[in-house]
C-alpha cells in the first residue's frame, strides 16, 4: 500500500451523450517510481483512463465519473474525483503532468515553453526560473541542443526535440506522476529511442503511466503492464509476467498478435 502513488477503485467513466460506460469498474494500482504501461487494441479505453487521471476530460462538459481515483501525494490520500473547484483541478494538473501523442509546443520561445507552467504556478523569481528551466532541459536530455537558442521559437525544432521539450515542460513542475499518451507514435525510430531512454531515466524522480500501441515498447520500458479490452481491465501484473506467462487467454492472444 505504501508504494502506491495512485489507485483507481471501481472506476467507471461514461462520455457525454453515450449510454454505455467506456470504462467499467477499473481497479488499477500505479506504483511509485515505476513505469506502468497500458496496452490494448484501439477503443479499449486506455487513453480514456489516462485522461481521467488528471481530469482533462473535464474540459468537455457532461462526462460522468464513478468510483474513486485516489492520489497518494505528500503522504496524503485524496480522491481526485471529489475535486470541484477550478483551482483544485489546476493544482491536480500540476501534480499529474501529461504528454500527448503529438508534440505540442506553445507558440513561444523554448525558454518560455519550459517556464510557462512555473509562471502559471506563480514562480516569479528570475534566477529560480533560469535554474529550473536549465535543470528541466538537462533532465530531459535536450539542454545541449537548446542552450544556445533558448530565445528562439520552439516551433522551429524537430518533432523529436519538440516532444522532449514538452517533457521538459512537464518535468519543470516537479509532478508526482507523468502520464504519457502514446508519446512516440508520431516520431521516427531514433527520436523514439531518445524518448524511451528519457522516460526510463525519469522514473527515478517521478511515477510514470504510459499508454502505447507498441508492445515492444511496453515490454522494453515498463515495470508493470495493464492489458485492457473493451473498457475492462483484463489483466494487470509485472511486465515480465504479462509478456512471458499471462494468466488470461485474451492477454496471450493479444500479445502474440492473434488479434488487435
Amino acid at each position: 500500500m505504501t508504494n502506491l502513488i495512485m489507485e483507481t477503485k471501481d472506476f467507471s467513466f461514461t462520455y457525454a451523450g453515450v449510454d454505455a460506460p467506456s470504462l467499467k469498474k477499473i481497479n488499477l494500482p500505479i506504483e511509485k517510481n515505476r513505469i506502468t504501461a497500458m496496452i490494448g487494441p484501439s477503443g479499449c479505453g486506455k487513453s480514456t483512463l489516462l485522461r481521467a487521471m488528471n481530469r482533462i476530460h473535464d474540459l468537455y462538459p457532461n462526462n460522468k465519473y464513478e468510483g474513486e481515483i485516489n492520489l497518494y501525494s505528500n503522504g496524503k490520500k485524496e480522491n481526485i474525483l471529489d475535486l470541484k473547484k477550478e483551482n483544485d483541478l489546476i493544482r491536480l494538473r500540476q501534480d499529474v503532468g501529461m504528454i500527448f501523442q503529438k508534440p505540442t509546443p506553445f507558440p513561444m520561445s523554448i525558454y518560455d515553453n519550459v517556464a510557462y507552467g512555473m509562471r502559471l504556478a506563480g514562480v516569479k523569481n528570475q534566477s529560480e526560473l533560469d535554474g529550473r528551466v536549465e535543470k528541466a532541459l538537462q533532465d530531459s536530455a535536450i539542454w545541449k541542443e537548446t542552450k544556445d537558442r533558448l530565445n528562439t521559437s520552439a516551433l522551429g525544432m524537430s518533432g523529436g526535440q519538440q516532444q522532449r521539450l514538452c517533457i521538459a515542460r512537464a518535468v519543470a513542475l516537479k509532478p508526482d506522476i507523468m502520464l504519457f499518451d502514446e508519446p512516440t507514435s508520431a516520431l521516427d525510430p531514433i527520436s523514439t529511442g531518445a524518448i524511451e531512454e528519457l522516460i526510463a531515466e525519469l522514473k527515478k524522480d517521478v511515477s510514470i503511466v504510459i499508454v502505447t500501441h507498441n508492445m515492444q515498447q511496453a515490454s522494453r520500458l515498463s515495470d508493470y503492464t495493464a492489458f485492457m479490452y473493451l473498457g475492462d481491465l483484463i489483466e494487470y501484473d509485472k511486465t515480465d509476467t504479462i509478456f512471458m506467462n499471462p494468466n488470461e487467454k485474451l492477454t496471450e492472444d493479444y500479445i502474440t498478435g492473434r488479434f488487435g
Binding site: 488528471n54 482533462i56 474540459l59 477550478e86 489546476i90 493544482r91 494538473r93 500540476q94 503532468g97 501529461m98 500527448f100 501523442q101 503529438k102 505540442t104 506553445f106 507558440p107 513561444m108 510557462y116 507552467g117 502559471l120 504556478a121 514538452c166 515542460r169 512537464a170 513542475l173
Partner: peptide
C-alpha cells in the same frame, strides 16, 4: 491537443486564450 496541453500544465481558461489561442 494544444489547448489541452496548456490546461494540463495548470492553465486557466483565460491563460489558455491569452497564451495559446491568441498567439
Amino acid at each position: 491537443v494544444l489547448k489541452e496541453s496548456a490546461y494540463a500544465m495548470g492553465a486557466t481558461k483565460f491563460e489558455v486564450i491569452k497564451d495559446v489561442i491568441m498567439p
